[in-house]
Amino acid sequence: MSIDKETARKVAHLARIAVAEEDLEPLAGELSAILGFMDELNEVDIDGVEPMTSVTPMALYRRPDEVTDGDIQDKVLANAPDTREGFFAVPKVVE
């Protein structure tokens, strides 16, 4: 499977990454190379092999339902370019 320039443009837009026009073609080439490697992996016969989800045999840890966090409004907002009365303030977004 190969990625063309338009697909590269679309993927970049969906990921909200600004890619200059002249960089799209090379990017498409790199993405195609990655998918080419995936295609090679697809040639391996994995019939009857369980998917490995972790390198160590462990189960998903489940924590008890207790409030152990929060009340750190200042920390949560610390990196925001703009805040008002405890809210993040962002350019108007209305659908």
């Binding site: 409030v67 966090d69 929060g70 009340d71 409004q73 405890g86």
Partner: peptide
């Protein structure tokens, strides 16, 4: 009492951004 993947409270009507963990 707490969120699906964090220990912050789910209480309704709290001050903005106080029931928020990192």
């Amino acid at each position: 009492n707490s969120k699906l993947f964090s220990g912050a409270s789910t209480a309704f009507g709290a001050e903005p951004n106080t029931n928020v963990s990192l």
